[in-house]
């Protein structure tokens, strides 16, 4: 613990500070959007969006290497893939009356497969592992700024649309009868979810990002009576889990993303058991 705090102040290991700052800032977005995802029960959709991101990352790397498009940063590719996946999944879940889950699963694996193929065909060696499981060594000060900007966007939009998004999550049909454009609001929610997923892929990776999106909100949901309280509590829980996970992973020399997810999962299970035993 003391070692970790010293390491955070060490000018030679700046990546740890960046990882800590990125993790804490992303916790805000995770708390807000995670709460929407949990109450609207769309964590499966979020999982599908997350996996499609690999396709975008692969495409960006390929364009950079093969066509020399230097602006095609992997995070741009990730953003583009996540937003397109959100749009496709949103439209499918609105209009497909049956077998919605099949289409979502298909997108889930196709996005992933496209990413692996594109990365394999990109000259030079890129390790997909760092995208799949996160790699805190890759976080730069630019990432921290991007997360800060996306955080601001998410906070502002969530505040402006709070009442309407809450109504859509609670009772979409009633919201529609009040004249709200529930389809646009649903797509907005999926879009915000996509943005949030892109935020933390650097830290916990594509495969585990859904854990950090849904578990802190699920823990908060066990004791919160209001959606906004759930959001604040979930944000604080995310931050604590990320900080504790990073500290543990540094002290014990463990992979950062997996340690963060393990800490979060254990707290969730412990909370769940305490609640079950009380009954």
């Amino acid at each position: 613990m003391i070692e970790f705090i010293q390491a955070l102040r060490d000018p030679d290991i700046a990546f740890l500070r960046y990882a800590m700052a990125a993790g804490l800032l992303a916790g805000i977005a995770f708390g807000i959007i995670g709460s929407f995802v949990v109450v609207k029960r769309i964590s499966y959709l979020a999982g599908s969006i997350a996996h499609c991101v690999l396709g975008g990352i692969g495409a960006a790397l390929y364009l950079q290497q093969v066509y020399g498009l230097t602006w095609a940063d992997p995070i741009l590719g990730a953003l583009f893939a996540a937003l397109s996946a959100a749009l496709i999944i949103g439209v499918v879940s609105m209009y497909a009356r049956e077998r919605e889950d099949t289409v979502i699963s298909a997108l889930w694996v196709l996005g992933m497969a496209a990413g692996i193929l594109l990365i394999a065909k990109t000259p030079g060696y890129t390790d997909p592992m760092s995208y799949l499981f996160g790699n805190i060594l890759m976080i730069s000060s630019a990432d921290v700024w991007i997360i800060l900007i996306l955080d601001t966007v998410i906070i502002v939009i969530s505040m402006l649309f709070y009442n309407r998004l809450q109504a859509v999550c609670f009772d979409e049909e009633f919201a529609r009868l009040r004249g709200l454009n529930t389809r646009m609001l649903y797509l907005l929610l999926l879009g915000l979810t996509a943005l949030t997923i892109v935020l933390l892929i650097r830290i916990v990776g594509i495969i585990m990002v859904v854990a950090l999106l849904s578990l802190p909100a699920a823990i908060a949901g066990q004791f919160c009576g209001r959606l906004w309280q759930m959001m604040i509590a979930a944000a604080v829980i995310s931050m604590l889990c990320i900080a504790a996970g990073l500290c543990l992973s540094y002290s014990l020399d463990l992979p950062g993303g997996a340690t963060i997810v393990m800490v979060t999962g254990c707290i969730y299970l412990a909370g769940f058991s305490v609640k079950a035993l009380r009954r």
Partner: peptide, 17 residues
């Protein structure tokens, strides 16, 4: 969803949307 975290007043306010 009976476990949705929302107050009675906020549900009734949805009628004003």
């Amino acid at each position: 969803d009976p476990s949705f975290p929302i107050s009675v007043l906020n549900i009734v306010l949805m009628g004003r949307l």
